[in-house]
Write a protein that binds this DNA or RNA. Sequence first.
RNA 1: GCCCUGGUGGUGGAAUGGUAGACACGCAGGACUUAAAAUCCUGUGAGCUCACGCUCGUGCGGGUUCGAGUCCCGCCCGGGGUACCA
Length: 948
Amino acid sequence: MEYNPNSIESKWKAFWGKNQTYKVENGGTKPKYYILNMFPYPSGAGLHVGHPLGYIGLDIYARYKRLKGFNVLNPMGYDSFGLPAEQYAIQTGTHPALTTVKNIDTYRSQLDKIGFSFDWTREVRTSDPAYYKWTQWIFMQLFNHYYDKNADKALKISDLSARFSIEGNTKVNAVCDEDTPSVSAADWNAMPSKEQQLFLLHYRLTMPEEAFVNWCPQMGSVLSNDEVKDGVSERGGYPVERKLMKQWAMRITAYADRLIEGLNDLDWTESLKEQQRNWIGRSQGASVKFPLASPAPEGGAAQTTSSFAPPSGAGEIEVFTTRVDTIYGVTFMVLAPEHELVASITTPEQQTEIENYKRWTSSRSEVDRLSEGKKVTGAFTGAYCINPFNDEKVPIYIADYVLAGYGTGAVMAVPSGDQRDWNFAKHFNLPIIPILDAQKDVEIEADNTKEGQYINSGIINGMTYKEATQTLVDALEERGLGKGKVQYRLRNAVFSRQRYWGEPVPVYWKEGVPYLIEESELPLELPVIDEYLPTATGEPPLGRAKEWRYHPKNEENTEGYEYELSTMPGWAGSSWYFYRYMDPSNDIVFASKEAVNYWKQVDLYGGGTEHAVGHLLYSRFWNMFMYDLGLVPEKEYAKKLLNQGMIQGRSLYLKLKTGRRLFVNVNLADEKDRLYRDVYLTMVENDNRFENINDTVENGDIEWLTDENGKAYTSLTPEIEKMSKRTLNVVNPDDMVDKYGADCFRMYEMFLGPITDAKPWSTGGITGVSGFLRKFWSLFYDQNGKFLVTDGEPTKDELKILHTAIKKVNDDIERFGFNTCVSAFMVCVNELKSAKCSKRLILNELTVLLAPFAPFITEEAWEQLGNTPSVLDASYPVANEAYLVSDEILYPISINGKKRGEITFPAGTNAKEIEATVVDLEVVQKWVNGGGIKKVIVVPGRMINVVI
RNA sequence: GCCCUGGUGGUGGAAUGGUAGACACGCAGGACUUAAAAUCCUGUGAGCUCACGCUCGUGCGGGUUCGAGUCCCGCCCGGGGUACCA
């Protein structure tokens, strides 16, 4: 009987479907194990061979864990809100929901072909109202809570307003907006309810906030950073400007410290944790106030801060520094050009220069600023402030190397210690004061050392870095001039999008104040609209919905109130989906207490590194918030993370004589990357040209060569890059599966190399894996269809072959070395083949070992062996014990819970025996426990070390 | 610049501090065949040698060690991330 993957695979696919083989229950006696893949966005292009890489790896691990006796949750779903479906809707009028369902169906059939053990009864789709009901619900909880720094957790906003009415807000230690004014209990109680609601927005964990966005006037739309390339929109190429707009925001900064702290407990790669730390960007330092040398002109421009805020910081400049110890080296002050004090402190003589500089900086695009590199620019305001430690007059400049958005938008410049300050000082001929005796010559360049003792530094002269910093911070706090402070790079996360295809925000606006709708009214479903573009007045698409107004139940208001018109961003639905899988159809809560307490957290999470600071940070934030509310049991939701590498494609392009590059479908070229003229002509005839169907290429643009047989061709240039529709280098897994079978496809993807590495796809080696499966099958049947399996006792040689594989595969699966597992299988089958061994006992164990990798062929093998073990039967002997086997002696190796390579010798074995045996085995190095021997090191032909 | 990674045959890649190159592809030769495909067998890091073998080899230069692809120090190069962040 020949190995025929197609018939075997369709048979077992049907069987699994019919028997719901991979359906999982919450509970039972087995230990739980939760495996999760980052769910895909179902794009119109379908799956390519890169998508399943991680899914296959995790599926192998899931099947392995199942065989080891775990109750494994391995679900799959779709992150189904997103821009492409909306763009398609704009172009064609097709409702995004229809496009989405169609794409999901394609994905599903592609996934089913590959033999995943997903429990599809738990599928989630973020665009399903039954799902986004709970996304909206979590939003409401965020709105209803604030972050209390003393409790170090989120608490109810209702408790906060109760406190305000008793003691005002001065004693409250909570995360809030920088410009939150102080109120007494009397102030608070005197406020109209509407004012109180506005005031509470300073504290809520989600709130409307003025934020800079990428605004594209032509498209009437806000774009993400990804959609902006070189200052114009990626689609259409329209100019994009930075515009201040009212946006919903999430106060993720409240969790900054805990998000850094939590990383320590996570089994993630160091590089990924480092990316998150850098993104949060915690820097410890101090804020220092420098009083202005002469009072700001009276009756200047009216202060434009919020109605609650008294003009703060008038008469002084506040800076943030990580090196307060360098304060005696300050020789000038630099403000960001946008700093609010600039206009009021500038002297009449400097007015023109400052105005010109401000105008110049605002005209420069990001690109201009970057391309000019380190060129020093700036302007003097004419004003001075006083260094509070030595009473020196310090000139105040503005320069665009100081950013308005970070810290206080002002820095104290220490040219001896900071290279940028040094460059500025040299350019404007400002003094440079050395401050440490260990510093290099500061006239040549800045030296940021912290070594040595301070000089020229007043009260800290002679001290070291640590002493000096402490002394200065104490002095600042004592004199009310500043304090130790922690600054973050992390900004609050913008949470609204001016789009249609997203979750509606469950908020309505009444007299300029946002209110939540009733919980019982969730989900707030997306309304039907006729067109998916912004309105004529520039409102988001939801502004087109008719009769889309909120009517509070207890109010006699026939008009109703306007709903929030923006929708939630893509990361909303993906920030909590891992809990929905635990209890996917619950409509009372997002997931029941029992379900959440049973599955607790994801044990193994798989996905690409591109989500390092987006999804993986936001979802941790939401999880911590839900933890604070007691909704979930774990501070971190994903204990271990496996980052699979991207599979790149090999694209081919045609260089025209005009210099243009045209991508050509990789399937049209031959092995030598030649495009033959007849193929090209067929392409043109079928109107199937290059990457853009409208491209017309005159033959004169193409350089035609002649091959050995006199046929005309042109050479194509190869390039390795991400697979995409545009570059026509997408390899579809369906073709691979149809040709070689899913088992082969699965094993080949693993065989390509370490799962964490990025690598180009090539089908070159797939025949090796295909040959392996045929060889494996030939242990069961010969070419004539004769069944070869026999019942004899295996010999020691045969056991050695088997157990070597068992040990290798078990060890390697545990460290996700799936590529070397495949090699081990190949060696094992080759050796069994040359030993002509088809013994039942050997094949039983080998098939169980192979099952996670090649589930179809092993199911079939079990049926042929006549003793089909249930794949969920933990008692089946899957290498809980293996043996290291020499020609003579079997030594058991314990595998569970012990160090790799640790050998447990039988009781009574003495040291000499072991030594002799090890030499005999030509085993290189082994750890031995018991018998007084700790270590045996053997190098054949050299020496033997026995450590006792 | 800073942070994180990696650098091994013609190729993808194996190697707990212990015989470098497992396994696979490709290539070469052979068997079967009228022939081809498929399959099977043999060889395949470099240099020297008729040969048994010998020498050199994991980006470069040092070091630790009985022993280094692996650990330490200093460089070079590639990949990814990030930035006038005070």
